[in-house]
């Protein structure tokens, strides 16, 4: 007769049902809709590497832009890409991805524009400022490093070797 106690207790109380509009709040670290900030992205390819269902695809064009493609309909929402993204360009929103009626609407494609090396003009994607601040722990140091990080790999190597050479030869400045 325990069941009678339970059902009468239920009948006495308000129902536990939420209306469809009355949403259950999402937990703080909910892995919801994935957003990508194209300004922060360096197309490094870490997200593609860690993505097990291969939902993220990166195309580095020969021209002046690259593409970051994501398919929400192929994502397991494991969160590895967000965890491993070095520039924190990927974040999860506090809501579920929208319900769509066509497969193509689940796909996101972002364009990441290349920039040019300030010395030689080769195409590069510099490290975003926020990431530099995180790396150098201060605004000023980051600003100082920006000059270096706006160079392409070759120019940077050359710059560093010049600094090294001048240090060894002992010449001031």
């Amino acid at each position: 007769m325990n069941i009678l106690q339970i059902i009468f207790k239920n009948a006495g109380k308000q129902s536990r049902t939420r209306k469809p509009v009355d949403r259950v709040p999402f937990p703080v670290d909910f892995r919801g809709e994935l957003t990508h900030d194209a300004l922060q992205c360096t197309l490094c390819g870490t997200c593609t590497y860690v993505c097990s269902p291969a939902a993220i695809e990166i195309t580095r064009d020969e021209g002046d832009m690259g593409y970051w493609d994501y398919d929400a309909g192929r994502c397991t929402f494991c969160g590895r890409c967000v965890e491993y993204c070095p520039t924190k360009a990927l974040t999860f929103l506090q809501n579920s991805a929208p319900i769509v009626s066509m497969r193509s609407l689940e796909r996101t494609s972002h364009v990441v524009e290349y920039q040019h090396c300030t010395r030689c003009g080769a195409t590069i994607i510099p490290i975003p400022h926020e990431t530099l601040i995180r790396l150098y722990h201060s605004e000023e140091a980051a600003k100082k490093a920006t000059e270096v990080h706006n160079l392409c790999e070759k120019c940077r190597n050359r710059l560093h070797s010049q600094i090294l050479k001048s240090g060894i030869s002992g010449s001031k400045d």
Partner: peptide, 16 residues
């Protein structure tokens, strides 16, 4: 007709 993203989707998304 409809795709519900998520792995798995939340019950409220399914109801919606």
């Amino acid at each position: 007709d409809l795709y519900v993203p998520g792995c798995p989707p939340r019950p409220q998304a399914i109801l919606e």
